[in-house]
């Protein structure tokens, strides 16, 4: 049968995703935008859970909410005038951008909803997770093991390339962010000002 998720859970999570994402782009305090981003990430992790991609949901929380979002929050704290929570994050041309984005949304929705997608029943899925201890879960859940085999069998090269990419970005970030003693720094006190 075609997979059929719980509608109540879907609509709750969808509302959370949309609301938090709106807060990310419109929140006046940047820190609140960061918190809203974490909310979005959690809701998306919930949607992954709804789609039974449990491993991905955990990775989403661990890597996205736990590392990337926290790092962005750190950056907000390091770059803002921290003791002044009322410092506003400015926006430009909201109406033009809104019109553009609505047009983009119309194109995307029209494209996706008008095309017919090949959906298939669950039978072709990889071997299911058979618990050793009697705890039963719904059938046809792609197991972590299946994902691991998939990652190492056809996707070996991308897997290794991603590790190289992360190493490169690590070194690059260190080089870019390191204080260069030869260059003079801008003087303190020139804080962000509202024009």
């Amino acid at each position: 049968m075609i997979y059929d998720p719980n509608p109540v859970a879907f609509w709750l999570l969808a509302a959370m995703v949309a609301g938090c994402a709106l807060a990310v782009v419109r929140a006046r305090k940047l820190f609140h935008a960061g918190l809203a981003l974490v909310g979005t990430l959690f809701a998306v992790a919930g949607l992954y859970g709804l789609l039974q991609a449990w491993f991905l949901a955990a990775v989403q929380v661990l890597v996205y909410a736990g590392a990337i979002a926290i790092m962005l929050l750190f950056a907000i704290m390091l770059t803002h005038n921290m003791m002044n929570p009322d410092l506003k994050s400015l926006t430009t041309q909201p109406w033009t951008a809104a019109a553009l984005c609505l047009m983009l949304l119309a194109i995307l929705l029209g494209g996706t909803l008008s095309s017919t997608w090949q959906t298939a029943p669950d039978t072709t899925l990889s071997p299911t997770w058979t618990p050793k201890c009697g705890f039963q879960v719904a059938e046809a859940i792609p197991s972590v093991q299946a994902l691991g085999f998939r990652l190492l069998d056809p996707f070996t090269l991308p897997f290794e390339m991603v590790s190289v990419l992360i190493l490169v970005s690590l070194i690059g970030a260190l080089v870019v962010a390191r204080r260069n003693p030869a260059l003079p720094e801008a003087p303190e006190g020139r804080e962000e000002k509202a024009p």
Binding site: V17, A18, A21, L22, V24, V25, T40, V44, T91, T92, Q93, P94, A97, A98, L100, C101, L102, L104, L105, L108
Partner: peptide
């Protein structure tokens, strides 16, 4: 919807 909200944020 999520993508368009992200685009909106990047633009504004």
């Amino acid at each position: 919807v999520l993508f368009c909200l992200g685009t909106y944020g990047v633009l504004t």
